[in-house]
């Protein structure tokens, strides 16, 4: 039977692909798509005192949210702080990633493990670590006081959240940057140098453009993680820093207003969508 072997073969391969993709598709459908659809549904329901949900269709949550300056500020604040944290993370991670990219052998392996090792402890533990370091009688504030400078308040405000999140996001940023550094060939840098480019101009005209895919990927990843971060702002903000994720928690767990929490969650999803769009726009331009 060698009459038409090509078609059944391709068909079989297609079947196999479907079969292999089925488990993850199922898990995604049950664990992600359905809950998100559910959230979207809640955002059009009405909340009752005491945590109840009235199954009616209403625009109340959306209208209330978009007309309340508190929430508008909350969204803008979250996006703005997350962008600032992402940028800071990028600036402190870039040299490390570049160094790692250029290192070789067991030294590189050792350093890479060092960079990833913070991920082995949970963000909760690391956040408490930062609280111990940044608290009013902690080593940092004591050192500043010992120098005779006015003691800053680094805990339970945005400064602490900023410092903690930046460090927590650094491993992700470094890994993403390194993944995107593939096009950076040391010979190309050398070519730029022999053609008369100073190290600074080589960086601006060759290294930076060639590492943009990594920068875009790292920024997307860290921005998304920053906007959705909850533990660090909750613990280090001491209830005085209001961000989207903490507000969703408060609405869902403290106030028991699930429809409002759902609406805020969908809003976060929209912000993610915008970030993803910006990312793919950057990649398209690079191509």
């Amino acid at each position: 039977m060698s009459a038409a072997p090509a078609l059944p073969r391709a068909w079989r391969d297609g079947q196999l692909a479907v079969l292999l993709l089925l488990p993850i598709a199922l898990i995604n459908a049950i664990g992600f798509i359905l809950p998100v659809l559910n959230l979207a549904r809640y955002s059009f329901n009405r909340s009752r005192i005491g945590g109840g949900i009235e199954q009616v269709f209403t625009w109340e949550n959306w209208v209330g949210l978009l007309s309340d300056p508190f929430y508008l500020e909350l969204v803008l604040n979250s996006v703005w702080i997350s962008l600032a944290i992402t940028l800071t993370t990028l600036v402190v991670s870039y040299p490390i990633a570049l160094y790692l990219h250029r290192a070789s052998g067991s030294w590189r392996t050792f350093l890479t493990v060092l960079v990833i090792s913070p991920l082995l402890t949970s963000a909760v533990v690391r956040t408490y670590g930062w609280i111990a370091i940044l608290t009013d009688d902690g080593p940092v504030v004591s050192a500043i006081k010992a120098l005779g400078l006015p003691a800053p308040s680094l805990m339970f405000n945005i400064k602490g959240v900023f410092i903690g999140l930046t460090e927590i996001l650094m491993p992700y940023m470094i890994l993403a940057l390194m993944a995107g550094f593939g096009r950076l060939d040391p010979r190309v840098e050398e070519a730029a140098r022999t053609l008369g480019a100073t190290p600074a101009r080589t960086f601006r005209k060759v290294i930076l453009p060639l590492t943009l895919p990594g920068i875009a990927l790292g920024c997307l990843l860290c921005f998304v993680l920053a906007v959705s971060s909850f533990i660090t702002p909750k613990l280090m903000g001491g209830g005085r820093v209001f961000l989207l994720a903490t507000e969703i928690y408060d609405q869902a767990i403290v106030t028991l207003n699930w429809p409002l929490a759902s609406t805020l969650s969908i809003l976060v999803l929209i912000v993610f969508g915008a970030a993803l769009w910006a990312y793919s726009a950057v990649l398209r331009r690079l191509d």
Binding site: V188, E190, L210
Partner: peptide, 17 residues
Amino acid sequence: HDRDMGMVFQSYALFPH
């Protein structure tokens, strides 16, 4: 960058961007 040499590399090393 001050040596004024023109170098051709084995891998050509053109700027891909």
